[in-house]
């Protein structure tokens, strides 16, 4: 969370300094992707806290499955925001850079993590 809160501060700074590389209309794709990276990273950080609280409330959760869910969530928490961020570093017109391929991978892992957690409760 600290990383992505810091990123939020950087984004705000770019607003304050009117950095064209981030704010110009022609860079709207980059701006969108960085905003998504920041918001997903922060929200996934909160989700990790929620996951930790859930683990403590469900002692009967199969350790193997719990570890799998935890790892999936952790990987998704890295892949999704990293995918948005890397996709925004280099953009092709309205298309993100190739880093964006990390996002669907992270999304699948997040889906698995949430599914395993839901099944355990």
């Amino acid at each position: 969370m600290l990383v992505f809160l810091t990123m939020g501060i950087c984004l705000e700074a770019m607003h304050g300094l009117k950095v064209g590389w981030y704010l110009d209309l022609s860079n709207s794709t980059r701006r969108l992707l960085f905003t998504l990276a920041h918001s997903h990273g922060t929200l996934l950080g909160l989700l990790n806290i929620g996951f930790a609280a859930t683990v403590s409330q469900v002692p009967e959760w199969d350790p193997h499955r719990r570890r799998l869910a935890g790892n999936c969530l952790l990987a998704a928490s890295i892949l999704i925001p990293a995918g948005f961020f890397l996709g925004g570093l280099v953009v092709y017109g309205g298309d993100p850079g190739l880093g964006i391929v990390l996002v669907p991978m992270g999304a699948i892992l997040l889906f698995v993590a949430v599914l395993l957690t839901a099944m355990a409760i």
Partner: peptide
């Protein structure tokens, strides 16, 4: 053209 060619569209 805007969705893909934002910079060109803007110019």
């Amino acid at each position: 053209c805007l969705a893909c060619h934002t910079r060109r569209y803007q110019s």
